[in-house]
Design a protein around this nucleic acid. Structure first.
Lengths: 111, 111
DNA sequence: TTTAATACCTAAGCGTTTTAGGTATATTTG
DNA sequence: CAAATATACCTAAAACGCTTAGGTATTAAA
């Protein structure tokens, strides 16, 4: 992507969906996973950690600390509300893409 | 859409693309056009007018006033830079959708 | 004649992200 | 072995883009 950033508002969708796929993840792991599968979408820690804290505050995620060697990881998983919200977010994104296609009068994917 | 809003950053893409399709448009016309073809994407005037002013300031659009009866409309059209940026923005959006599909591991459109 | 639609605009506030740091442990490399 | 890089968490100021909530004025509809 020319512009360095992802479209604002999509970070939460990414987090929730990754946690739907993986059951338990810690913050740094999420940044690496995104880098691995979608190299153009840089998610920065400055955005990620506040987003995780907000999702936890909204009871969409729960957190638990796990010690690995001498280092502590904070693992997150979806709550029931989080699972529901994850589905909603995905639908929002699908709707957005469809509406954009109507306006742009072109398909947004080749697949 | 559940959430009332569009993904942040997409408004500029919408404006530029509509002006690619229509040559000349005024602000209010843009709001109505979007409402007409994508009823779920509400673009508000409070967002639109500052966005138009910024695009004009960045020399992607030029503006000219036209009197229609006793009422003045401010018509915008793309500059050469604007045409280039319009293409870039569309490519950015396409890239974004493709990268999101990789992360979500699902297609975002049925078409 | 009041309301709704057309047509422009601004400004405060809000939420999300960027930018730019900070701490500490573990591993790699020169 | 020392220094650099990677892992792992975090915060805070600032920028950014949008929402919300106004404002003015003209024209059309109820």
């Amino acid at each position: 992507m020319r512009s360095n950033s992802l479209f604002k508002g999509s970070l939460t969708t990414i987090i929730l969906t990754l946690l739907e796929q993986n059951e338990m993840m810690y913050g740094y792991e999420i940044t690496q996973k995104v880098k691995e599968i979608a190299n153009d979408l840089k998610i920065t820690e400055g955005a990620l950690y506040p987003a995780l804290h907000k999702l936890e505050g909204d009871s969409l995620l729960t957190a638990s600390f796990k010690k690995v060697g001498n280092r502590t990881r904070k693992y997150y998983k979806l709550t029931e509300n989080g699972k529901t919200e994850s589905v909603n977010r995905l639908n929002d994104l699908k709707d957005f893409v469809e509406q954009m296609q109507l306006i742009l009068n072109t398909k947004l994917t080749t697949q």
